[in-house]
Amino acid sequence: MPKNYSIRSSFIDTAETDITYPDPKKVLKQSLMIPGWGQVTNKQTWKVPIVYGLIGGLTYYSVYLHKKYHDYRAAYYNLNPDTPDDNRFGDTPDYIPDNANLSALQQNRNFFRNRRDLVYVFVGLSYALNAIDAYVFAHLRSFDVSDDLSMGVEIQPAIIATNYATHAPSISFSINF
């Protein structure tokens, strides 16, 4: 049976109530299994479209970059006179002219490959950020954010015993949270 944290809280105008919060480790595992599940468990469903929009948008962009990389790779090898014309990477796309500059094709191929790889890293970071967000919020969920977050400072005179027979005047300073 999963552990739940239970915090007994009392307010001035209400009776004592028991509030249970989900286990942060369980929330972390849920978010790692299915992105957004931890946010739903934490009752932050408004974050789920953001999570899926970010991961989905980056994934879509990586697929686009991957297709462009394959197009320029095929064009570079098909139009290069040093490589045999075997079309091993597919046909040259129609939007790339047959008289294209080989160094420009190679630069475009490398650009799309590097950008695609960088977007893969961002997809992984977005996935991890989703899980970290759910885990941290599950830990901070029991944090008191009521309007009664006050601090009391008190300064008053006091007497300190310096040794067995003598006393010295002093000032007492205390802070209550």
Rank of each mutant, 00 (worst) to 15 (best):
S174K: 07
F112A: 03
F177H: 00
M33A: 14
S142C: 01
Y64W: 04
Y120L: 11
D18N: 11
G38K: 02
G56M: 07
V63I: 13
Y64G: 04
D144A: 07
V119S: 02
S174C: 00
A75G: 04
N110E: 15
A104L: 14
Y72V: 09
V51H: 04
A134Y: 03
R115N: 06
N4C: 09
D86G: 10
Y76V: 07
T92N: 12
P81C: 09
M151R: 08
V27M: 03
W46Q: 07
A131S: 14
N176K: 06
A15S: 12
Y72R: 03
V63A: 08
K3Q: 14
A158Y: 07
D82N: 12
Q30S: 12
G53L: 10
Y60D: 04
I175K: 00
I160Q: 12
K68H: 02
Q106T: 03
V121G: 09
L65Y: 02
K29F: 12
K68Q: 15
D148K: 12
I12E: 10
S146A: 12
Y135E: 02
V119E: 03
Y52V: 08
P35K: 05
S174A: 10
S31V: 01
F122Y: 09
S142G: 15
R113L: 15
E154Y: 07
D147S: 12
A100W: 07
R109S: 13
P93M: 14
I19W: 06
S150Y: 14
F173N: 02
A15I: 05
H139I: 10
F143P: 00
Q44M: 11
F122S: 06
Y69C: 04
G36P: 09
T14R: 11
I7R: 13
D98T: 12
G152I: 11
Q44P: 06
S170I: 00
Y21V: 13
L118D: 04
Y77H: 06
A161K: 15
N4M: 15
R115D: 07
M151I: 15
D144R: 10
